[in-house]
């Protein structure tokens, strides 16, 4: 099953999964992606590996500038995809329920919680994680916000930091960093248990005032 197969079905339904579904009607039009042999295998008690293959779906997503052609179970979240399958562990898991912001990444330029984002819904999107923030890569010069976090000591244990930085960059890009109170409100989706908020606000103000491109 290739992505091309999938694209041909884009008109009405562009993807589907699961053994159960394989057994079901062809009415939704996604049927062509399912070879009859697989259908049979489902009915007759599938070998685990084949089952796995059919529980997985193709996904194409650009992550930090690299186009990823993947096959994943639809229940995989963007967060777990990054951390457990792509070894992009800069994006953190803090609550897994959209309640802490540690997993903040940019999808098509918007900051979102990767833990509540099914990876399948990022098909065709551009995802930026902390690893992809600095334009020259992880060993090159830092992004101004990363510099400012170091300068203002906007972190302690460092675990919420990638999420804070991704959020901070978005905060400025969105135009919500005009004063400390506005920054506080628009950074409230990122919990820092070490309590570095006051320094984080200073870091964001500094970048905003500096006028560098973020």
């Amino acid at each position: 099953m290739t992505n091309q197969d999938n694209n041909e079905e884009q008109a009405e339904n562009s993807g589907s999964s699961r053994r159960g579904f394989l057994k079901q009607s062809a009415a939704l039009g996604a049927f062509a992606m399912t070879p009859p042999s697989a259908m049979k295998a489902v009915d007759t008690g599938l070998h685990e590996k084949i089952a796995t293959a059919f529980e997985q779906m193709p996904l194409q997503v650009e992550i930090n500038g690299t186009l990823q052609r993947l096959k994943i179970e639809p229940r995989v979240t963007l967060l777990d995809l990054l951390r457990e399958q792509l070894n992009l562990t800069g994006t953190k898991k803090g609550c897994d329920l959209g309640q802490c912001g540690a997993c903040t990444v940019h999808v098509d330029g918007q900051r979102v919680n990767a833990c509540l984002t099914l990876a399948m819904t990022t098909e065709g999107c551009k995802v930026t994680t902390i690893e992809g923030l600095a334009p020259a890569g992880p060993d090159g010069p830092l992004h101004p916000m990363q510099e400012a976090f170091i300068k203002h000591d906007g972190f302690q244990c460092g675990y919420c930091t990638p999420g804070q930085i991704m959020s901070a960059v978005a905060c400025i890009r969105e135009g919500h960093a005009d004063n400390p109170d506005e920054i506080r409100e628009y950074m409230s989706g990122n919990i820092c248990r070490c309590g570095a908020y006051s320094n984080i606000v200073d870091a964001i103000m500094d970048v905003k005032k500096g006028g560098q491109k973020v």
Partner: peptide, 9 residues
């Protein structure tokens, strides 16, 4: 749980 995922347009 594993679920069926369908994308519609």
């Amino acid at each position: 749980n594993q679920f069926q995922y369908v994308r519609v347009t």
